[in-house]
Computed example of a mutant assay.
Amino acid sequence: MKYDTNFKCIRNDVSPEEWQARVELAAAYRLVDHYGMTDLIYNHITVRIPGTEHLLINLYGMLYKEITASSFARIDSEGKVLWKPDTDYTINNAGYVIHGAIHKARPDVGCVTHTHTRAGMAVSAMKCGLLPLNQTAIRFNGHIGYHDYEGPAINLDERERIVQSLGEHDALIMRNHGLLTCGPNVQQAFNTLYQLEMSCRAQVDSMAARTDLSIPPADVLGRTAHLYRPGTRRPYGVLEWPAMIRLLEAESKASPFPYYAS
């Protein structure tokens, strides 16, 4: 079996648009690892290659900290692998079922993230769902969907129900499962994921304190959620992204893993 992960750089073998998408996607994987949102080799972040209906997805078996721009598989809208590095690693069908459904139904979505974090799974099991306990969580008030658990996401029939549960939102709590976010680009999808994860961690901490919880009145919740919508004041993630790249650049100097943008 061939499980080498030091793949040849393919920058000169793909279009500039695809390469840029690969670099941004690899950065998102490394950031998810940095912020402690990984689950061994599981989960996915996908991006649509600009000007196409093709997606980039991680190989099933690699750690997020190992992923580089050249390590992604390119798949079509039906999950067929069009290209991947020379390795026995392939893709996880569950990634296609969940991500492919959203990309296909939502042309406004360029990137989809999905995680199984400890806090995300905890909140996904709570009947109350995500509570507007703080400013970060209030951002999602009225702007998050819920999808009931149907077992491991390998049933193609579930795709339509996932899309219906997400609706027009950019965040979804998959009950008894985990978290999902999406956005027009990698920057916004990652930023939404980070904020949703922080909201879940804060909720678990608050509820563990075993004290009465304070929730702001409805008018404050509505006004605050509106102010944090993408486009009300500024897009999510765009201002933050250069700082995130600087963080990765600094980390790469001490990392034993290949540079993410290679």
Rank of each mutant, 00 (worst) to 15 (best):
Y3C: 13
Y3L: 14
D4N: 10
T5G: 02
T5F: 03
F7L: 10
C9H: 07
C9D: 13
N12G: 13
N12H: 15
V14N: 07
P16D: 07
E17W: 04
W19K: 14
A21H: 05
E24H: 11
L25E: 15
M37R: 09
T38C: 05
T38N: 02
L40I: 11
Y42K: 14
H44Y: 04
I45R: 15
I57E: 04
G61F: 01
L63N: 05
Y64C: 03
K65Y: 03
E66A: 08
F72P: 08
D76C: 11
D76I: 15
E78L: 07
G79S: 02
V81C: 11
Y89D: 05
N92W: 08
N92A: 12
N92Y: 10
N93G: 05
G95Q: 05
G100E: 09
A101I: 15
I102H: 04
I102K: 10
R106E: 15
P107V: 12
C111M: 09
V112G: 12
V112R: 08
T117G: 05
A119G: 09
V123S: 06
S124V: 15
A125K: 05
G129R: 15
L131I: 11
L133R: 06
N134G: 11
Q135E: 12
Q135A: 12
I138T: 11
I138N: 09
R139E: 05
F140I: 06
F140W: 13
N141C: 11
G142P: 03
H143D: 13
I144F: 05
Y146L: 09
Y149F: 10
E150K: 15
E150M: 11
R159T: 09
R161V: 15
V163L: 10
G167D: 03
E168S: 12
A171P: 12
A171L: 07
A171K: 02
R175K: 07
H177G: 12
T181F: 02
T181Q: 01
C182S: 10
V186D: 00
N191L: 08
Q195N: 12
Q195C: 07
S199P: 01
C200R: 02
C200F: 00
R201D: 00
A202G: 09
S206R: 13
R210V: 07
T211D: 09
T211F: 06
L213F: 14
S214C: 12
S214D: 14
I215F: 00
I215Q: 01
D219W: 14
V220P: 03
A225P: 03
L227R: 08
L227H: 10
R229T: 15
P230E: 00
R233D: 07
P235C: 00
Y236V: 14
G237Y: 00
M244H: 09
L248C: 02
E249M: 05
S255A: 01
S255W: 00
P256D: 02
P258T: 00
P258Q: 00
Y260K: 03
A261I: 08
A261K: 10
S262K: 12
